[in-house]
Design a protein around this nucleic acid. Structure first.
Lengths: 180, 180
DNA sequence: CGCCCCATGTAATCGGTTACATGATTGA
DNA sequence: TCAATCATGTAACCGATTACATGGGGCG
């Protein structure tokens, strides 16, 4: 019906109507952990959603040349989101630069590789702390059907991912340090 | 010096010189697990690498209108690859459609969600088996500095990732099944 | 003879990023 | 009055995907 970006926008608007500006801010953080979009992508997509009858807006006074527009999903937009959520995801090809470097790591200097993976390890540890802090601000086991459940489940995935990545970095550092 | 695609190509050619066709095949499997490129992307990039002095080719007879071209990295190309491997990766924004669906899952039907995550779980279990099979074909602990080390370390990451994803799917299925 | 695999290329299109452009409100 | 923040948009560019285009070699 619409692009994945369109559904990402509907997913945010379904939680609370807001302006394109606030939408861009939400897609920076916290949603930016798993989906990002700049305002130059969001504004045209909002126009398309309105044209397709999936979203509507209310013009209210405020800053900016023409005031601001508060967007909401229409009933049709909400129904489309509900359908899209349970559809199988379209597989997009993986592109992981760190794994690519690892694949070619046999040509590189081990000491430099250890430095690289130590930096990577520290970055993932920082992200893990940030995720855990956000999770601890949510109810222990949010009821399914509540917005908090969506946030909690996404954070669970992020925390698990960072732990996997941390374990990998530690293993690499151990391997590279062993025989030298 | 060149694009990430260029380094991906150099990483494959550093293991063994080959034609653009074989390069495309390698980037489909097994390398396609973490980096992909079609032949329509590879051929122009090879021309750029040659123009930049990072790769060279030898024309040999074979099928195709003008025979085939076997590409190799030049000494300069290998040096560039060695430098690139230990540089910090340029952070590309995450885009995970499954997590996006999860974030919006509070609007959807729980029974349909369970079906979705069961399908996802099965797909990750299949991939895990494939990775483990490939890993078992490699030496137990490949010596660092050998090509097998790069393959082994990339597979270690893939296996760890699939396990993380499997744990997440199982947790989601458990959560959605509990209270109904 | 026809089909599949090998082999190399270009063109059109699409999603996303960066840069350009404008202007109102708020508060120091 | 000046700067930061709020606010909305367009244009240029870039990487990647899909489609178009050509043709040789091997095999049934």
């Amino acid at each position: 019906m619409t692009s994945t970006l369109g559904y990402a926008i509907l997913a945010v608007l379904a939680r609370r109507p807001r302006s394109g500006y606030d939408l861009a801010a939400a897609m920076n953080r916290p949603m930016g952990y798993f989906w990002t979009a700049g305002h130059s992508q969001i504004h045209p997509e909002l126009q398309r959603l309105v044209a397709a009858g999936l979203a509507s807006f209310e013009q209210v006074p405020g800053p900016g040349p023409q005031g601001k527009k508060i967007y909401s999903p229409t009933a049709e937009g909400l129904a489309a989101l509900r359908r899209w959520v349970v559809e199988p995801p379209q597989s997009r090809p993986e592109r992981d630069e760190m794994v690519l470097k690892t694949y070619a790591s046999w040509v590189a200097d081990p000491a430099e590789l250890v430095r690289l993976f130590r930096e990577e390890l520290a970055a993932h540890e920082r992200r893990l702390s940030a995720y855990e802090k956000e999770r601890d601000a949510l109810p222990e086991v949010p009821a399914h059907g509540s917005q908090a459940f969506g946030s909690y489940a996404a954070l669970w995935c992020g925390i698990s991912y960072e732990r996997h990545r941390i374990a990998w970095c530690r293993w690499m550092i151990g391997q590279l340090g062993v025989d030298r």
